[in-house]
Design a protein around this nucleic acid. Structure first.
Lengths: 173, 173
DNA sequence: GTTATATATAAGCAATAGCTTAGAAATGAT
DNA sequence: ATCATTTCTAAGCTATTGCTTATATATAAC
């Protein structure tokens, strides 16, 4: 997962995986069948990884809009100049004919959108957001914003990224 | 440019370029020196291409916010399931150590942001937007949104993409 | 302690990567 | 028409690609 994240799918050779994973090519192939399958399992692991390490607090039952705002604004300061999101990078790189990979990518984005939906729903319950808030449209918007943040975190400077995020959060008000 | 746009940088082989460009490898190398340099020139050509064919109307002197809204909403219906933006795809794929390429990518995004700045300025003059509109922050926001649109156009369905864009445009109101 | 099973390594496979050389065909100037 | 220059093609260079085979080593069962 880390090697694909740092280098992208095509630029990651099996020799590099061998070196970074610390095991032989044969072991890689006997465990993962093919480079493509290892990549798919890396995408699955990435999802489990961000669940535990990145979005953990936002996935808790009590989480609301305030938590989401804090999270996004916090990510602006950390994530400028970083690798971006592995799945966004893959969505931009991988050919649409790669059905299995695309399916994994779509599943990930549905997961993120589901998380945003829940946050919006909780926020309405908590009266952080008005009852008429359109959860479907807003979740689409913030998913798109998060995809933008991934690209922007690779290209924008910190303050520019922060402006992008703060105005995105401002939209819902 | 087209081959890199369709396949990405790493997945584009010189054999494929040879075939699609209709000329021999030697001719490619005598004209462009290296695959990397051909890619850089493709990025430059892409910029000229979108200037003439995509953003032409928005770059005209009279263009204001209404034109930008029409453009973005129009792109939602066309661009779902397409290749996305070559430069965004490249920003997601290319390693940050590739200084020359990254510089070209940054230049492109500065160009887009400059266009948005001009649109915001004109919009204020035309009283489409209030005079207190923060051009710097708003241009960062809409650049981030356009980066998101590129990713979203590869992954979202049309109506979802349209929701994203319409709420993004709603932010400024 | 021996045997069976799993997992490691090293070496090597054909195919393709980016790039170059050698030489033919076309071009343009005189 | 000739000669020099440019621009083409075909072939081939070394290195690396994703993947396998043959073989050794560790593990586990009885």
């Amino acid at each position: 997962m880390q090697v694909f994240w740092s280098n992208g799918y095509e630029a990651t050779s099996v020799r590099l995986l061998e070196k970074e994973m610390g095991i032989n090519q044969f072991s890689i192939y006997s465990s993962f069948s093919s480079k493509k399958n290892l990549f798919i399992q890396s995408l699955q692991r990435y999802r489990a990884y961000v669940k535990q390490n990145v979005y953990h607090d936002l996935l808790k039952d009590g989480a609301g809009w305030n938590d989401f705002e804090t999270f996004l604004l916090g990510s602006a300061s950390e994530s400028s100049g970083n690798r971006g999101c592995l799945v966004v990078n893959s969505a931009a790189e991988i050919d649409t004919s790669e059905k299995e990979i695309i399916s994994e990518i779509n599943g990930y984005f549905e997961f993120i959108r589901g998380m945003i939906r829940n946050l919006l729903y909780s926020a309405i319950q908590k009266k952080e957001l008005p009852a008429h808030t359109d959860i479907e449209k807003q979740s689409a918007f913030f998913l798109g914003v998060m995809q933008g943040i991934s690209v922007a975190s690779r290209t924008m400077k910190g303050d520019q990224l922060k402006d992008f995020i703060s105005l995105a959060l401002n939209q819902i008000k």
